[in-house]
């Protein structure tokens, strides 16, 4: 597969899988205002998915469209990172997953606005306001849950610790990532990692949370299609109608 197409699918898959996870929370958040906010984020991400997929499909030129990409690939062809497959859990789990992702996503998208690929830069430009807001929101909630009550602090620290090993995958570059860096398309891992660590440290300090160790073992494989057991279930639910009624228009 062409490295750029691969890269675009990674971006789209991340947004899609996280959006799908948030969709499951419809009407089930801890406050009405949270329901609104979650669905806002889910919608934003879905919009970004479609932009990445559209470009990927065009470049690929194999006659696939956004729905073909979303509904007719099996788990081993999905390239989202493992963090996003982790279950919604309690609200601390949900928001910590969101915060870890939003922080990376913000710095990545900001970097992509300078991409040598004009289309990628344009999509990033469009997405930047959204992801800036997502980060502000998830950061605000991490601070409040971390520096809230003893119970919320315990749940938030537990979430921070449990999800930590999924946070490094995005900074572990493979041949595809390196090709993007070399072509001036995407930012470097070390830059993003430094920015990510600094921001997470800042928020964690305010949240009175302990940073897990930087040198902890990190899970990986999502970008290469080696996923956790969660993804198969997520896709089975998401793709059901298209798979059950293969020749239908919706």
């Amino acid at each position: 597969m062409d490295p750029k197409v691969n890269y675009l699918l990674r971006l789209g898959d991340n947004a899609l899988i996280l959006s799908q996870q948030l969709c499951r929370l419809c009407g089930k958040g801890p406050a009405l205002e949270e329901d609104m906010a979650l669905s806002n984020v889910a919608l934003d991400l879905l919009g970004q998915t479609r932009l990445w997929y559209e470009y990927a499909a065009e470049l690929e030129g194999a006659g696939r469209d956004e729905d073909r990409l979303a509904y007719h690939r099996d788990a081993h062809d999905f390239k989202n990172c493992l963090l996003l497959e982790q279950p919604n859990g309690n609200y601390a789990d949900t928001m910590m997953r969101q915060f870890y992702f939003d922080t990376w996503h913000y710095f990545l998208i900001a970097g992509l606005t300078h991409s040598s690929d004009a289309r990628i830069a344009a999509i990033a430009e469009k997405s930047l306001k959204e992801v800036t807001y997502h980060l502000r929101r998830s950061g605000d909630l991490v601070v409040r849950m971390g520096d809230g009550t003893a119970i919320s602090h315990a749940k938030t620290q537990a979430a921070a610790d449990a999800l930590w090993m999924y946070s490094g995958e995005v900074f572990t570059y493979d041949a595809v990532d390196h090709a993007m860096v070399d072509a001036g398309i995407a930012p470097r891992a070390d830059e993003l990692c430094t920015q990510w660590l600094a921001h997470v440290a800042e928020i964690f300090a305010e949240a009175t949370l302990a940073m897990p160790p930087k040198d902890a073992w990190m899970q990986s494989g999502g970008k290469q299609g080696r996923h956790t057991e969660h993804l198969g279930i997520i896709l089975a639910e998401m793709q059901f109608l298209q798979r059950a009624y293969p020749n239908a228009q919706w």
Partner: peptide, 26 residues
Amino acid sequence: EGNWVTRAPTLKRKSILLAKIQDEAG
């Protein structure tokens, strides 16, 4: 409706349904 948003058959339909559900919360 939340029951079907995770199974919406196209990305466009999913977006629209999600927007509708969000409107209802609003």
